[in-house]
Computed example of a mutant assay.
Amino acid sequence: MQDNNAWDDDRDDAAKQDFKPLSREQAQALRAKNPSVSPWRVIAVQVVVGGVVAALAWLLTQRMEVAWSSLYGTATVVLPGVLMARGMTSRLSGMSPVAGAAGFMVWEMVKIGVSVVMLMLANRIVQPLSWPALLVGLVICMKVYWVALLWRR
């Protein structure tokens, strides 16, 4: 029977020998090649896309309740996103990696909770409510995240 620990040690030594830290210039070039996407930019694009979807909903149906329902679906994505972006860009989240990870989990739970509450209140806030229009606005605004990841400088 072979001792697998020896194999792990050999692999660790090989990985340590292959690892070379980046120079300052290499790190800057890597950051320039892969820029991060601002959460505020994503939210701004979601607002614009939601407005366009609501306008198209009104143009296609000529019914204001469809447009308002679509806008409420947009708000169900945007408002919790604003809360999360505000929480994640605060000074407390950037203090340490542990604080950042914990902050992300907390703000993600807040975001989900607010979204669920908004959906539960939709029928009381938007009268009369068109669930299909609300869901179209919600889904299209959620898909803006993927577009933002693809749409980098």
Rank of each mutant, 00 (worst) to 15 (best):
V117H: 02
G94N: 06
R124L: 13
L121Y: 10
M95N: 10
A122C: 05
I112G: 04
E108G: 06
P97G: 15
G100N: 11
G113Q: 01
G94V: 00
A102M: 11
S115L: 15
L92Q: 12
V114H: 11
G103L: 00
R124G: 14
P97R: 10
L92I: 09
A99Y: 06
R124A: 15
W107P: 01
V114D: 07
M120T: 06
R124I: 07
I112D: 04
M105G: 09
G100W: 03
V110L: 05
R124M: 14
E108P: 04
L92E: 13
I112Y: 07
M120H: 06
G103V: 00
I112E: 01
V98R: 12
A99K: 12
M109R: 05
P97D: 13
V117S: 07
V114S: 09
A102R: 12
N123A: 15
I125G: 10
E108D: 12
G94S: 03
F104Q: 00
N123M: 14
L121D: 08
A101C: 03
W107Q: 04
N123C: 10
V116G: 01
V116A: 05
A102P: 04
S115E: 12
M95P: 01
G103M: 00
S96G: 02
V106P: 02
L92T: 10
M105A: 13
S96Q: 02
L92M: 08
V98W: 08
M120P: 01
E108Y: 10
N123L: 12
V98N: 12
A101F: 15
M109G: 13
A99S: 11
V110P: 04
M118F: 09
S93K: 05
S115F: 14
A122V: 08
W107E: 00
I125K: 13
S93N: 10
K111Q: 09
W107I: 01
G113K: 03
V116F: 04
A122K: 02
M118K: 07
P97E: 08
L92P: 00
L92W: 14
M120I: 08
I112W: 12
R124F: 13
N123H: 15
K111I: 04
A102T: 09
I112K: 05
A101M: 15
W107A: 01
M105R: 08
A99H: 07
K111H: 04
R124Y: 14
R124K: 15
M105Y: 07
I112M: 13
A101S: 14
P97I: 09
R124P: 05
E108S: 11
G103E: 00
L92G: 09
A101V: 11
S115T: 15
M120N: 05
V117Q: 08
M118D: 03
V114N: 09
M105Q: 08
A122W: 05
I125M: 12
V117N: 03
L119I: 06
W107R: 01
I125N: 12
A99I: 04
G113P: 03
V106R: 10
M118N: 06
A122S: 07
L119K: 02
V106C: 00
L121G: 11
I112N: 04
F104S: 02
M120F: 08
S93M: 11
V106F: 08
G113I: 02
V106H: 02
V110D: 00
G113E: 00
S96D: 06
L121R: 11
V114Q: 08
M120D: 03
I125H: 10
